[in-house]
C-alpha cells in the first residue's frame, strides 16, 4: 500500500509557518576618544600701562581672546605686565595639551621683543566639580608662574631680563610642544555637565629698554588624546 504523499505534504506545511517563541535584538555602540578646550573664564591683566583686554574669554565657549599688553618700554614702571588666561579642558581619555607661539616685532635689532622675552607658564591645575575625575593626575611641563624669582632674572652680562626656567618662555614653543598632560578628565557624564579641568595660562613681559615698535604675539593651544 503506497504512502499517501498528498497527506504527508499537507501535514508538514504547518511546521514551516515560521512562528517562534523567541526574538532577538542585537545592539552595539561606539565611544570614540573625545577632547575639547574652551575658555575657563575671564582674562586677568595686571601691571599694564595702557592696553586692556580687547576680546575677553567667556567660560565654556571656544577659546579666542585678544589682549593689548600696552606699553612695554621703561615708561611702564611695573615690574611685569602679566596676562592670565583660564583654560578649561575636558576629555574621556588621557590628554595632551600642546602649545605653539609666534612673536613678531617691527624692530630691526636684537633689542626688539623676541619669543624669549615673553614669559609663560601654566598655573595650578584644578579638577573639581561633579562628574570630574578628581583623582586623575596631571604633569605640568612648564615651570609655572613665570614671574617667580626662581623662574627668571637679569642676565649679569647683558643686563636683559631672562626667563630661564624650563619651558618658561615662548622660545620653547616655537613649534607645537607639550605643556600639560594627564589622565582622563571627565567621568561618564553628559556634555551638558559644565565642569572640567581648569588651568591658568600665564604670560609675562618685563618692561625694558626694548627697541621701539609694535609686537604681535600669537599663541595656539591644542589638546589631543593620543
Amino acid at each position: 500500500m503506497p504512502l499517501p504523499s498528498s497527506i504527508s505534504t499537507k501535514l508538514i506545511l504547518p511546521s514551516m509557518s515560521g512562528q517562534s517563541t523567541t526574538g532577538t535584538v542585537t545592539m552595539s555602540a561606539t565611544v570614540s576618544k573625545f577632547v575639547e578646550i574652551n575658555s575657563g573664564g575671564s582674562v586677568t591683566l595686571t601691571g599694564n600701562s595702557g592696553g586692556g583686554v580687547t576680546t575677553d574669554g567667556v567660560v565654556n565657549t571656544p577659546l579666542g581672546v585678544s589682549i593689548n599688553l600696552g606699553e612695554l618700554g621703561p615708561s611702564n614702571t611695573n615690574s611685569f605686565v602679566t596676562a592670565s588666561v583660564p583654560l578649561k579642558l575636558r576629555s574621556n581619555a588621557p590628554y595632551v595639551l600642546s602649545m605653539s607661539a609666534t612673536v613678531t616685532s617691527s624692530g630691526s635689532t636684537t633689542n626688539k621683543i623676541g619669543p624669549a622675552d615673553v614669559g609663560f607658564g601654566l598655573g595650578t591645575v584644578s579638577r573639581t566639580g561633579t562628574g570630574v575625575n578628581t583623582g586623575g593626575s596631571d604633569t605640568n611641563a612648564t615651570s609655572g608662574d613665570p614671574t617667580l624669582a626662581a623662574n627668571g632674572s637679569v642676565n649679569g652680562t647683558s643686563g636683559r631680563y631672562e626667563f630661564t626656567a624650563v619651558r618658561s618662555n615662548l622660545n620653547a614653543f616655537s613649534s607645537s610642544t607639550t605643556a600639560l598632560n594627564g589622565a582622563f578628565i571627565m567621568n561618564a557624564v553628559p556634555r551638558s555637565n559644565a565642569n572640567g579641568l581648569v588651568v591658568p595660562a600665564s604670560f609675562a613681559i618685563k618692561p625694558q629698554f626694548f627697541e621701539n615698535g609694535t609686537t604681535t604675539i600669537s599663541v595656539t593651544f591644542t589638546v589631543t588624546a593620543p
Binding site: 532577538t24 545592539m27 555602540a29 565611544v31 570614540s32 575636558r90 562628574g131 556634555r191
Partner: peptide, 13 residues
Amino acid sequence: QFFASGVSSATLI
C-alpha cells in the same frame, strides 16, 4: 556621555 572609549555590544532575547 563622556564614557571611556571603546565598542560595546549586547543581545536581548
